[in-house]
Design a protein around this nucleic acid. Structure first.
Lengths: 172, 172
DNA sequence: CCTGAAATAATGATTCT
DNA sequence: AGAATCATTATTTCAGG
């Protein structure tokens, strides 16, 4: 098995001049980044087979990607619905008055497990908060708390046709 | 090493009546779900040490969580900026006319690596699209394409104080 | 569902190219 | 940077409670 995502031998010289971006990622890095983003528990030996490198070389490559900060960690993806969260929603917040993200009230709110993402943004609103809740009653409860921070606009997720696609390094 | 997240022996009987939710996750499942969401490359043996179970038992538990669909996969987390994406943004879209997500034009657009998430929502808008782009020129390019689908409202991400927190199963 | 033991496979350290 | 070797650990499978 394997050989699904292979690269021609020619592009794998130890000094890959062609096919390497100025950002310091060569073709093998690209492959590894894609592989670990989609199948994060692959063995080093299996990764080695796929990119045609020894396990030791893959270890070294991944270590570099990790210490350089390109790879920030690994995690299981879960299905919120299977964990009992029937509703996901985006809540946009326009703070009134002097609230900011450092406020104790805000920090405490962000601790709640239902708050899965918080983004500070510029544009029509100030924050975009993503939540996972069990049901509409639960949503109402969270919404009341978030409303303390500002005027909210809520969008309930029906489906997510694209979820966390592997991100390739930019070509340039 | 280890013993960071341990559970008292009493809660680990083979038929855990107390402390188990009706959703079918007991205390050990909870711990495993948290551990694999935050440190997805932990060895089965290490997971076993943390939850005080044999590696074989952990294998079996994870297999069940995977086949039941609670765990949908594993992946590396990456830092978009380190991959050359200087800007992340949310683009809300209000389609004009008869566009929908099945439209070939839309499907093609969603293939682009810059489009990292697409959510079909109800509320003020129809879709919420998350993008990662190299710079403002790149953003303009994507925005032009997305604008073909409907009226857009863009929010550029400054910082993300909460990103992909581990989601615990709901208690009930 | 779990443990324990035994066979197989993966990993990490070292050395060499 | 990568390969090859070898000592150490991890994983898988299966018998049994």
């Amino acid at each position: 098995m394997g050989d699904l995502v292979a690269v021609p031998k020619e592009t794998r010289s130890s000094r890959p001049a062609a096919n390497e971006s100025s950002s310091g990622f060569d073709a093998v890095d690209r492959q590894l980044l894609e592989l670990v983003q989609t199948e994060g528990r692959l063995k080093l030996s299996e990764l080695g087979r796929r990119v045609r490198l020894s396990p030791a070389a893959v270890t070294e490559r991944l270590r570099r990607l990790e210490t350089s900060g390109a790879i920030t960690g690994y995690g299981a993806r879960v299905d919120p619905r299977r964990l009992g969260y029937g509703i996901e929603a985006f809540i946009r917040v326009n703070p009134h008055g002097g609230y900011n993200l450092k406020h104790p009230r805000t920090l405490e709110l962000m601790e709640r497990p239902e708050i899965t993402e918080v983004h500070h943004v510029v544009g029509e609103d100030c924050w975009i908060v993503k939540v996972a809740v069990a049901d509409t009653v639960h949503l109402e409860e969270i919404l009341e708390e978030v409303s303390a921070l500002g005027r909210t606009t809520t969008s309930i997720v029906l489906t997510s046709p694209v979820r966390q696609k592997p991100l390739p390094p930019v070509m340039r």
